[in-house]
Computed example of a mutant assay.
Amino acid sequence: MADLQDEQTPAHPAYAAETPPPGPASVGAADPPATAPASALDRAAALLSLHPVADGHNTLVRTLRQSPYHDIGTPDTGVDTDIPRLRAGGVGAQFWSLLPPRGTAPDRALADALDQVDAALSLLRRYPDGLCLALTADDMADARNRGRIASFLGPVPGSALTDSLAALRAFHALGVRVLAPAGAPWAAEDLTPFGHEVVREANRLGVLLDVTGCTPAAALRIAGASKAPVIATHTAADALTPHPDNTDDDVLLALRAAGGLAMATFDTGQTGDSLHAVADHLDHLRAVAGPGSVGLGASFGTEPGTRRPTGLTDPSGYPRLIAELLERGWPETDIAQLTWGNALRVLRAAEFTARAAAHRRTG
């Protein structure tokens, strides 16, 4: 894939050592002045300029529905996400979560999801110079080339389908590209017959399935039933921090085998309260799932006061995290996959699965 091919990083500004005044040892010297190596933070910035972050989970849409008077086109201290801080952090693509607040009544799930889709589309219309709706992997790459932040809608909750595949098709027509089965009656410990139909229809449409929050048994069933890779949009390593939204090693191995994606969150309850703790989780995800199945899904989008790991309180902290991974010895090729390449690959795989399904239906 072109986006994952090794690219030569352009020369980054280096800090030239002082040249000594001419003297017996330096007059006529042919050696160029020595240069200091670029710092990890400089290298991180250079990497992100080529391979920006595709962040799998941001809850800003829900926050703005509750507090609609924020201007995210300028630095806004009322929320932790705005366009200037997304750009400062090197974010090139964002999945806008449309999940309901915890405790939403099941009979309100569909209406709430539709309200959030409407709010997300309004947000994108309001900031056309910074954000643009993305429906495909090509849209994601094109937005980057045009200096926009590619904006995907989803996940929406699986409980919003209310036993109707037509609801899934309607969400897809509105632009939704991720569905989260967790909490849906059709995706408990096992998939019901309707659950299997949902997985097949999601594959046919090119809608990704987000197994965050599913029980390990349900996540394994969904990953096994899906012909397209499945993802976990905001998770961490359950082996390091037990949490209902974290992913155990068996599921990580299944994601690795199926080409799926585990996207690390920056939620202190899931990872711990420091940038180093988040990096520890990324080390574990990479070791178990492999460098081709790990990504980033920070879960920004909240109001001030939400606990975030030190150094990662808003999207502008991404370069610091990448610098930490470089200092831990992550190859630049693995970081390029982490930030951008893996998300792009999974989207293309889902689209390929959808095209193959359409071919079978018409063949």
Rank of each mutant, 00 (worst) to 15 (best):
R286S: 04
L261Y: 04
A298M: 10
R307W: 02
P331N: 10
G260I: 04
G259F: 06
A277P: 05
A354K: 05
H276R: 13
A279H: 07
L338P: 02
F300S: 09
G295M: 02
E303G: 14
A289H: 06
G269C: 10
S274K: 05
P315Q: 14
S293I: 03
H276L: 10
G269M: 08
A323Y: 02
G301A: 00
V278W: 05
H281K: 12
P315G: 13
P309M: 09
R345W: 07
A289N: 09
H284K: 05
G269V: 07
L321R: 03
D314N: 08
M263Q: 10
A356M: 11
R328H: 15
G259T: 02
S316R: 01
A350C: 01
R328G: 14
R286V: 00
N342Q: 07
G260R: 06
F352V: 06
T268N: 04
G311L: 07
I335T: 11
G259Q: 08
L312P: 03
L326F: 12
H281W: 10
T302W: 12
P315W: 13
E324H: 00
L326R: 08
R286E: 02
H281A: 13
P304H: 00
E327L: 12
A323M: 04
G259H: 05
A356G: 04
T313V: 15
P319V: 08
D267K: 06
Q337I: 09
A349D: 15
D334G: 14
F266M: 12
L325K: 08
E303P: 11
L325W: 10
G329C: 09
F300K: 12
G292M: 09
T333K: 14
A287F: 03
P319I: 06
V294K: 02
V294C: 10
A323C: 03
A298P: 11
A279D: 09
A258S: 15
